[in-house]
Every structure is written in structure tokens, then in C-alpha cells.
Design a binder for these strands. Structure first.
Length: 448
DNA sequence: CTGGGGATGGGGCCC
DNA sequence: TGGGCCCCATCCCCA
């Protein structure tokens, strides 16, 4: 006969003991703040502590001390509270750091919850759906569904603090499965094979390219952080050495460990010397601090990590006023706008020769603009249409905060893309710096 | 089919 | 910390 309340009471008792510092045999020092806990609880909850404690001194008379500098005490408090209660207090502010810490501590349950939290927070499904809708808008008629997608996303942005209770069956969920779920959530059209694989409109792989060129010679196909979690399970549970793919993966994981070890050394995760797991030394590796919770990429600055995370979340906060295309960065939007919609390049699109205001003019094709020299222009049989500067008008219609006007932009985009879908009206617009500058000024506020 | 160029996206890093 | 610039890889289009 099973008494279901026993587990709860047991955990509750352990939590009480922790709070009253009863039988605590492990001190965790996080940025100077000491947390007391029980070795056996930590051992059972974290792959990191499992490894740490299994290799620590067998002398149980002295408390084990573990020191961390990679996450804040507040973050560890959230994690420790979860360990002792099963309740994870996630907020939009702490989820990234909690996820990163959970990744470091190899706590797959928390990782899964964080992924779900981020997923729901960003409403990625809706966003990706919208992404594809916008991309396919040139082929399909625009539907009224577009604007609401952005409204829902903005709504989701202000997520209140939520507590996640992890059910047992989910706690035992294999990490990879959760990732595949997450990936399927990310895309309904493109199957993702690896966690770090991301989406773009072309479905191309967006694995950080630099990593392959410079990043410690890591393999392009190396699996991500979740394999770090799995690794513990594999090593503890024993992996099939006869599987060559596992061997190569293990080799990659060793490399991964070495990479992480740099962090430890450089940033003083001064674990007790006797309890530091033996790892490879890579003293010549660059110093990295902020680790992406989605992949193995590490960056030096938090801002860079924030920027990097967009490639995982699919967030594209910078929409083009002219065509509705969205970008992850303002500079990309600006570059796109200048080249596509402002004929920023002083090059004849046809003959590729340099074009000045005197030797050529701007041709407008839908929302796209480019320059043609007079010779190429004469060859082309364009109907000269009075310059109504529709593009400029459309560009200046919606201003203000880029986030607050997403819904409007969607509606606007529908019209614009419908216009683009029509046979292009070629508008020959003579280059006029004043007009161009004026148009620029009208648009720039949105680009700032 | 292929190579070149344009467009796009991501990383490093300076300001 | 964000903005911005530079560099480079990748993908797509087109000749």
C-alpha cells in the first residue's frame, strides 16, 4: 500500500531541517552567501553535485563546501528552494539565469521547466506562425489573423511570476525529448534535428558560424547543453562504447568539459581542491563567462548573450516599415532598409557601374528601390510614373515605439505585401537629395 | 549545373 | 548596457 503523502511530508521535513540547519552537511557558497543543505539531497537532485560529492572526501565528519561565482545567490535560492520543495519560482527576469545555473548544475528538470517557461513567455509558436505567414504572404492572401499574433505576444511579454511544480513523470522526462518538443514548438514546418538548430525563413541552419571557425575548434554538429546533462546520465548509467557515434559524442563532450573548465579556472569556482572533478586543462582557451542555456556558445558580455538568445527564441523586434520583414538587430534592419528601400547603393543595378545623381536615377519597384544609370534606364522600357512617394508615406505612417506598434505594422504589412504582389509599378524617381534626406529623416526615428 | 553577387544573420568588440 | 561597426558564413537568385 502506497501512501502518496509520504513523499511530500518527507520533503517537507527535509526542508524544515534545512531551514533550521539540522543535519546540514554541505555548505554552498554563492558570491559570498552561504547556503546550507544536505549532501544526499543535493546528490539526488543535481548531476553536478552528484559528480562533486562522489569524488569528494569520504570524510563525512566535515561539511562539504562548494563555491559558485557563476550565478547569483538569488538564483541559487530559487534552485535550492525547488530542490527542497518541488516548486520553482520563475520570473521573466530570472529564468535565463536560473536556466543557465540549472544547466551548470545539471538539473534537467529545471531546464525543462525553464524551456517551457521561455517558450510560453515568448509565445514562440505564435511568433513563428506569424513569421511564416509573413513570409508566405507574397504567395498567399493576407488574412486577418496577422495582427492578433503580435498582440498576443506583447501580452505574453508581461508574464507574471509563476511557480512551476514539476510532476514526477515530467521530471523523469528525457532531455532530448523535451528539446524535440520544444523544437516542434518552434516550427511546424521545418524539422529540427539538433537543439541548437534554429529557424530562418529559408529554413537554413543558424548555428553560430563563428563557433566553427574560431570557437576552440568545436565540431559543428556538437550537441548542446542538454547533452551535458545527458552526459551525466550516460556516464553514470554507462554508455555503449561500441556505438561510434557515442564515442565521437563523448569526445566532443570531453572537449565541452574542457571548455567549461576554463570558466571554472578563470572565474574562481574555487571548489575544494579535493573535490574538483578531474578535467582537461585548456589554459590557452579564451575567457568566456556567459553561457547560452540553449547551446554551447559562450560570450563575454551579458548583452552579447541577450543578443545571441534572439537566434534561439526567434525574437525579431525590428520590423521593416516598408516590407514588414523583421530583423533581430536594428543594424540589420537599417542595412536592409537602406539597400532595399532607399537605393542606398550608388550602383546601377543592371550594369553595376557607379551611379551618381547626375548619371542615374532611382527606380522604385513596389517597395524596393534601386538605381539605374541613364543608359540602362533608356534600354529598359519603364513607364514613367509620377513620383508619388508612396513608399515614404507608408513608411511614415506608423511611428513611435517599435514594440507598441507591432500590431499596426502587421496590418500595414498586409497592405504593403499585397501591393508587392501586384505587378510591379515601376516608378522612375529622379534622385533628389532633399527628398531622400527628408524621407530618411521621416524613417530614421523608427530606426533609432 | 555552376559561379558570382546580393541579402541576411551572427559574433567580436569598440564606444 | 545598448548602439554600432566590422567581418565573415550561409543562402538564394540569376546569368
Amino acid at each position: 500500500m502506497e501512501i502518496s503523502s509520504h513523499q511530500f511530508h518527507l520533503l517537507e521535513q527535509l526542508n524544515e531541517q534545512r531551514k533550521q540547519d539540522l543535519f546540514c552537511d554541505c555548505n554552498i557558497l554563492v558570491e559570498g552567501k552561504v547556503f546550507k543543505a544536505h549532501r544526499n539531497v543535493l546528490f539526488a537532485s543535481s548531476g553536478y553535485f552528484k559528480m562533486l560529492l562522489s569524488q569528494s572526501s569520504k570524510d563525512t565528519s566535515q561539511p562539504t563546501i562548494a563555491t559558485f561565482e557563476v550565478f547569483s545567490p538569488e538564483t541559487f535560492m530559487v534552485i535550492l528552494d525547488f530542490v527542497y520543495s518541488g516548486i520553482l519560482s520563475l520570473t521573466g527576469q530570472n529564468v535565463i539565469e536560473v536556466m543557465s545555473a540549472a544547466s551548470y548544475l545539471q538539473m534537467t528538470d529545471i531546464l525543462n521547466v525553464c524551456k517551457t517557461f521561455i517558450k510560453s513567455s515568448l509565445d514562440i509558436n505564435e511568433k513563428e506562425k506569424d513569421h511564416y505567414l509573413s513570409l508566405s504572404a507574397k504567395r498567399m492572401n493576407n488574412e486577418s489573423a496577422h495582427p492578433s499574433l503580435y498582440r498576443s505576444r506583447r501580452k505574453a511579454k508581461s508574464n507574471p511570476t509563476r511557480s512551476h511544480v514539476i510532476p514526477d513523470e515530467k521530471a523523469s522526462m528525457v532531455n532530448e525529448n523535451s528539446w524535440s518538443n520544444y523544437n516542434s514548438y518552434l516550427s511546424s514546418q521545418i524539422s529540427l534535428q539538433r537543439p541548437e538548430t534554429q529557424l530562418s525563413k529559408r529554413g537554413r541552419k543558424l548555428v553560430p558560424t563563428r563557433k566553427r571557425r574560431k570557437h576552440l575548434g568545436l565540431s559543428q554538429t556538437r550537441d548542446c547543453v542538454q547533452y551535458k546533462s545527458d552526459k551525466t546520465e550516460q556516464t553514470s548509467g554507462g554508455c555503449n562504447a561500441s556505438d561510434s557515434s557515442h564515442i565521437s559524442r563523448a569526445r566532443e563532450e570531453i572537449q565541452f568539459d574542457a571548455e567549461n573548465d576554463v570558466d571554472h579556472d578563470d572565474y574562481g569556482y574555487n571548489q575544494e581542491p579535493e573535490v574538483i572533478p578531474k578535467r582537461l586543462k585548456h589554459d590557452d582557451l579564451p575567457r568566456m563567462r556567459f553561457k547560452c542555456p540553449f547551446c554551447t556558445h559562450t560570450v563575454k558580455r551579458r548583452a552579447d548573450l541577450k543578443r545571441h538568445l534572439r537566434c534561439h527564441t526567434g525574437e525579431r523586434p525590428y520590423p521593416c516599415e516598408a516590407c514588414g520583414k523583421r530583423f533581430t538587430r536594428l543594424e540589420h534592419l537599417r542595412s536592409h532598409f537602406q539597400t532595399i528601400h532607399q537605393a542606398g547603393k550608388l550602383i546601377c543595378r543592371k550594369c553595376k557601374r557607379h551611379v551618381t545623381d547626375l548619371t542615374g536615377c532611382v527606380v522604385q519597384q513596389g517597395t524596393r528601390r534601386y538605381r539605374l544609370c541613364h543608359e540602362c534606364l533608356a534600354e529598359a522600357s519603364f513607364d514613367s510614373v509620377p513620383d508619388d512617394l508612396d513608399a515614404e508615406h507608408s513608411l511614415t505612417t506608423y511611428r513611435g515605439n517599435k514594440h507598441s506598434k507591432w500590431a499596426l505594422e502587421e496590418e500595414q504589412k498586409s497592405d504593403e505585401e499585397t501591393m508587392e504582389e501586384e505587378p510591379y509599378n515601376l516608378v522612375i524617381q529622379h534622385v533628389d537629395d532633399d527628398i531622400s534626406d527628408e524621407a530618411d529623416e521621416k524613417v530614421k526615428p523608427n530606426l533609432r
